[in-house]
Amino acid sequence: MEMFVLSFTIFILALFVGVELINKVPPTLHTPLMSGTNAISGIVVVGAIVSAGSEGTSPTLANLLGFLAVTLATINITAGFLVTDRMLNMFKRKN
């Protein structure tokens, strides 16, 4: 339970950091911001990796779901970062 309280504290503080930070992003970059945050929400891949790789002997339903999760999260990460990069380079080359 102490762990939960600690985690919850971090969650709330991080929300405030997020609000402060994102309010400074100009409207011009809102689309790349969305695709970029798509990419970083792929961080659930760390949980997916542990789910997919544990108890390796026979593939259980849990491992199968882990595999699905790794695939989905990796789609988010690669598509998110690459498409954001593509867009941001369009904004950059003007200077």
Partner: peptide, 10 residues
């Protein structure tokens, strides 16, 4: 948790 709340805030 930190990452999730950043994306949530955004």
């Amino acid at each position: 948790i930190i990452t999730g709340s950043l994306v949530g805030a955004s």
